[in-house]
Write a protein that binds this DNA or RNA. Structure first.
Lengths: 209, 209
DNA sequence: CGTTTGTTTGACCGATTGGTCAAATCGAGG
DNA sequence: CCTCGATTTGACCAATCGGTCAAACAAACG
């Protein structure tokens, strides 16, 4: 019996089969957790989705909690990167529009990740509240200061910087988290091209001085 | 043994105690379902929250499903009313801003209802998809036509009418569904006054011709 | 080929789940 | 005070939950 690394990422020491199975489990966990939330998800469903027996799944991850935790920690960085990438020395309107586009692309390409995050927040963020009050808050305060500077310099129209960031989050994640509703209203087509054009219009009118 | 109405609302025939207990159960169910989702919620927790024993709860509602269903059906109307109330004969910008304010007030005053709805959509809307594809879709199409008319008459700036409605939903519900995140970033104060001012600015710049 | 190490599974466990039921308790009317 | 229906509860049930374990199986290697 090999006590497979219950902690972090010495992926080097893992065999091919270990990497593949753990990846399959994370993939399945992402699907199930993002639909049902942590409490609603069951190991049986995750195991079935991953094509493994339940004891076999528990051979690779020590608990349901461990799968969920690894998914969440991986997520936060992906989630904050687009905001981090806003360049304080760039052209303000372009930088902010590019941020919106990156965030919308994330919603389009990683809807399950978006819903996993939404589920965690809806449940009161019991597992990532510290990260929200730490990393996230600091990053937002930092970028809000940059935006405020742009406003003071008259390079974008005055707007509450933090609520501007909230608006970007709300508008982009809506297309991932509420996609069932979006499709119920719009029909079968891909809503993203129009969404992109709409958000471009919205933020351009909001920000252009 | 009285077989308490398992169907709809002859509230007239109910005694005071029946009305009170059923109300307490719905209240508790709203709290629990909105936090944990349908699968994650347990009858034990709902019963505890309502101050009842589990068998006593099941004396008033025949199943977990029944509580959830009654909450959801009651919800949809509350949710659509603000959009219904948009007056096709009013002043366009005022009407739409009033809609935004009504929807934000809903998020402020009924956050649990908002989260219950969000949970249902996140899970794929298994219980209200028909209503979304029916009532909701028709209402949105109807109001989108009104907005399009306003655009054609040059009374508001051109904008995709359906995505405009999505934007109102996304921006207002964000403050209810993600309030933990909002508070993590902003600190303890009440975010709604600033949110209201921000959304007023946003939609005024977007819509003013 | 045998051994050792890594992988998979069937059987099982205690706890919790949604739900039942008969018996106990309450409360209003006679 | 008695009665009868309304309400409440303790005990219980089958199913499912997260998780364990020993045994079976597979793979690598000398």
């Amino acid at each position: 019996m090999t006590d497979i690394n219950a902690g972090q990422e010495p992926e080097q020491t893992m065999t091919r089969i270990q990497r593949e199975k753990r990846e399959a489990i994370l993939e399945a966990g992402l699907t199930v957790f993002s639909q049902e939330g942590f409490r609603g998800a069951t190991l049986d469903r995750i195991a079935a989705e991953a094509g493994l027996s339940k004891p076999n799944l528990l051979y690779y991850y020590p608990s349901k909690e461990a799968i969920h935790e690894e998914l969440l920690t991986g997520l936060l960085h992906t989630w904050l990167d687009p905001l981090k990438a806003v360049n304080p020395n760039g052209e303000p309107v372009d930088e902010l529009l590019a941020y919106v586009h990156r965030k919308l692309a994330l919603a389009r390409d990683f809807p399950r990740e978006s819903r996993l995050f939404a589920n965690e927040i809806l449940q009161g963020a019991p597992r990532i509240l510290p990260a929200l009050e730490g990393e996230l808050r600091e990053l937002v305060e930092d970028r809000a200061a940059v935006i405020q500077r742009w406003i003071d310099e008259g390079r974008i129209a005055p707007v509450d910087p933090v609520h501007l960031i909230f608006s970007v989050w709300a508008l982009t994640q809506h297309y991932a988290d509420f996609d069932v509703q979006v499709h119920a209203v719009l029909g079968a087509g891909d809503p993203f091209p129009r969404a992109e054009a709409h958000l471009e219009t919205l933020f351009r009118r909001l920000l252009t001085p």
